[in-house]
């Protein structure tokens, strides 16, 4: 009797879970495995040329020094953008969660999320207008200042960082906001009544309790930034060659899908490795 009940429970669990897994299978696993298959082909999946399964595409990464150089460059970009997003996003989230109440909070929230609703290309092109020489920043500064300055950030590494930080900042603000809001105000009040200075409250209470949100936000930013290609291409100009743009070239410029796929999976492996190495730290944070 007990066994049948257990069986029925199992059956129901499978029934309930299966849509989610089916979705994962169709939307994630199948396309990814197709790409994984392509990455071992000697020729692209077009035409009817002879194809073999080879490792050459992966070896290419190690044979050509510039691939690892670019990957390192992309990882550094990811680290810089993530750090900036955390530095800017956390205080913003704190102000939203703890200082501002009522209508204003809703209004500010809308401002944070608004860029999210606009197309990312539109956002990046707006930045191009702002950052360019004779652009908005340049013109405004020259109107205000008594002397001539020339601000032309367009087509520099800084422009790429600015565009990416703006694009991914909402992730950090939203995840931090959720954890910050869950912190009971009475904890802070108690600390204050016991004479703790602001710095101690921040470091011993608020930061540790909101760390899960910060970590989640950081991962959400780091992973896509390392593979980004659109922002570097538009804002970076000649300084905009990263691992992501090289992968894009393989797919859209020379139709070498196998090499492009192999480079993508190399990137995936490296990112997973980084997250695995960091996981003890990340786990403690949770």
């Amino acid at each position: 009797m007990g066994a049948t009940l257990r069986q029925r429970d199992n059956f129901r669990a499978v029934l309930l879970i299966s849509p989610a897994y089916l979705w994962l299978l169709v939307a994630v696993f199948l396309p990814l495995s197709a790409m994984l298959f392509f990455s071992f082909l000697s020729e692209g999946p077009f035409g009817d040329g002879a194809r073999q399964l080879v490792l050459q595409n992966y070896l290419e990464f190690f044979e050509k020094g510039f691939y690892s150089k670019l990957l390192w460059r992309s990882l550094k970009l990811g680290a810089v953008v993530t750090a900036l997003c955390l530095l800017i996003g956390f205080p913003c989230a704190y102000v939203l969660a703890k200082t501002i109440k009522g209508r204003w909070r809703e209004a500010l929230f809308l401002l944070v999320i608004l860029p999210f609703w606009s197309n990312s290309l539109v956002r990046i092109f707006s930045w191009a207008i702002v950052l360019r020489g004779n652009g908005v920043i340049d013109a405004t500064l020259n109107k205000l200042l008594p002397f001539e300055v020339s601000v032309n950030l367009m087509f520099t590494y800084s422009a790429v960082v600015i565009g990416l930080v703006h694009s991914y900042l909402p992730y950090v603000i939203l995840t931090s906001y959720l954890t910050l809001q869950a912190i009971d105000d009475s904890l802070i009040d108690a600390a204050r009544s016991l004479g703790a200075p602001r710095r101690t409250i921040l470091l011993r209470i608020i930061l540790p309790l909101s760390l899960p949100g910060l970590v989640a936000g950081g991962v959400l930013v780091f992973v896509p930034v390392v593979g980004s290609f659109m922002e570097p291409r538009i804002l970076g100009g000649r300084a905009g060659t990263f691992f992501g743009t090289v992968i894009e070239d393989q797919f859209v410029a020379v139709f070498n899908w196998p090499l492009g796929a192999a480079l993508s999976f190399t990137l995936l492996a490296v990112v997973l490795l980084i997250l695995a190495v960091a996981s003890p730290v990340l786990k403690r944070a949770q």
């Binding site: 050509k64 510039f66 150089k69 060659t241």
Partner: peptide
């Protein structure tokens, strides 16, 4: 393509 990508990468 390889030549060009290498040049772009090395000039960063």
């Amino acid at each position: 393509l390889e030549l060009w990508q290498e040049l772009k990468a090395n000039s960063q």
